[in-house]
């Protein structure tokens, strides 16, 4: 048995000896440059995909069904945002206005804009509600009462919604193809960096203020913030 082992060792040693040492080194030098080049290619390509292509693929974009100028309307009303986005008698928040509110002024076509004519003929005269796409809508698992934030805590509309009240047109609505959320929840910066309080509306942004203001922070379950303040 031992003889066979030794023989086979010798044979393998002989096989290694047949490859010329110099050729092997030369080949490695040439291929390492290529390898680094490919690494860089891959690195740069993925950066482009991750920062540029991915956000474009992730969100779908569509225009609002009807054009709307917040600035013009804001100038004509007395009570600012609350003239149209009001609180109901029971304290619940009306959200996006319904046709019932628009119809007071827009029963007939006003001015000569095409968008106005489209709105009146397509929606007002046919009693169809406008399917507005709401940028800041939180998902169904979140219970967000405007009354607690605006009426009780006295927050401004601008804190969360930015300067939309001064906009002259409505930007396209972008929706995450996977989560079905509006893009405004994550924020327009794909890295999730926010400069203003209205740039993002993720859970951390809510929690930051809730912790600072000590909103029901004594949860029995988590020993920290109360989940069920916002979640059902």
């Amino acid at each position: 048995m031992s003889t066979v082992d030794e023989q086979s060792k010798a044979a393998s040693g002989m096989d290694e000896g047949h490859i010329p040492q110099g050729v092997e080194e030369k080949k490695q030098d040439g291929s390492s440059a290529t390898i680094i080049l490919f690494f860089v290619f891959g690195f740069i390509a993925s950066l482009i995909v991750g920062w540029v292509v991915f956000p474009k693929l992730l969100y779908s974009s569509r225009p609002q069904p009807v054009e709307f100028n917040h600035l013009v309307h804001n100038e004509m009303v007395d009570e600012g945002c609350e003239s149209c986005h009001f609180f109901r008698e029971d304290g619940s928040y009306s959200g996006v206005p319904t046709l019932a509110q628009c119809i007071d002024c827009h029963e007939e076509v006003q001015g000569d804009s095409e968008a106005e004519e489209y709105f009146v003929t397509e929606y007002v005269q046919r009693y169809r509600e406008v399917p507005w796409l709401v940028y800041s809508r939180q998902p169904p698992c979140v219970f967000f009462p405007h009354s607690a934030h605006v009426l009780k805590a006295g927050m401004d509309c601008v804190t969360c919604h930015g300067s939309i009240g001064e906009s002259e047109s409505l930007r396209p609505y972008e929706q995450n193809r996977i989560s079905r959320y509006s893009r405004d929840i994550w924020g327009h910066n794909i890295a999730g960096i926010s400069r203003n309080s209205w740039d993002r509306m993720k859970m951390d942004d809510c929690a930051e203020c809730h912790q600072r203001e000590n909103v029901n922070q004594a949860s029995v379950q988590t020993k920290r913030g109360g989940c069920f303040v916002c979640h059902h």
Binding site: I35, G42, F43, S46, V49, G50
Partner: peptide, 17 residues
Amino acid sequence: SFLSFAIGGAAGTALTP
């Protein structure tokens, strides 16, 4: 080269959101 490209891609991806 392909392996290298993939490793570079992975490294780069980790540096994207």
